[in-house]
């Protein structure tokens, strides 16, 4: 049998998507924090985007399933906050997927998120910068609602955190 490597696991995990943004893989979302392999046993450490994210259990199950379907005999998924998630961990590929999905990707920040960072989002439709935040809360915990004065459409942003 072929030796399992982290690259295999990452490649398989590409198939597991964020249930709330189904074009974004967990790998690109940045919530897979560690992968360790011992023979045929794989341990994956995940961390939630938001502490109250209801999707974490579903993601955990999906990781189990995908790895088992790829022939991994024993899978352990641990959720912890040792290396907490922040939105800078979303990959370039992930940001492109978010934009294509219709959401403004979170701007990169220095880990101090303040109102001036949140208020000015770039419209994912027309790239307009003449926008205003309408409310910091949206249809899911990770989205805020904005309005673009250039194309006169409302849009959502994946919140910087």
């Amino acid at each position: 049998m072929e030796t399992l490597t982290e690259a295999h696991i990452r490649q398989w995990l590409e198939a597991v998507k964020d249930p709330e943004i189904p074009v974004l893989s967990l790998v690109d979302l940045g919530v897979i924090r560690d992968i360790s392999i011992q023979g045929q046993k794989v341990k994956v450490v995940m961390t939630p985007t938001f502490s109250g994210c209801p999707a974490i259990d579903m993601m955990k199950q999906d990781v189990q399933e995908v790895l088992k379907n790829n022939g991994v005999e024993e899978v352990e998924v641990e959720v912890n906050f040792k290396t907490a998630w922040n939105s800078n961990l979303i990959s370039e590929k992930g940001r492109a997927a978010i934009k294509k999905f219709g959401l403004a990707p979170p701007p990169m920040h220095n880990l101090i998120v303040d109102i001036d960072i949140i208020e000015k989002a770039k419209c994912p439709r027309c790239d307009g910068e003449n926008t205003e935040m309408k409310t910091p809360f949206g249809p899911t915990l990770c989205r805020s609602i904005h309005y673009c004065y250039d194309c006169r459409e409302a849009f959502e942003q994946f919140k910087p955190l």
Binding site: S51, F137, I145
Partner: peptide, 19 residues
């Protein structure tokens, strides 16, 4: 918007308490 805001904050706080 306020309905959604208070509901979202509820979800955050209950999730944080759980941890």
């Amino acid at each position: 918007e306020e309905d959604i805001a208070f509901s979202s904050m509820a979800q955050d706080k209950v999730g944080q308490s759980q941890q």
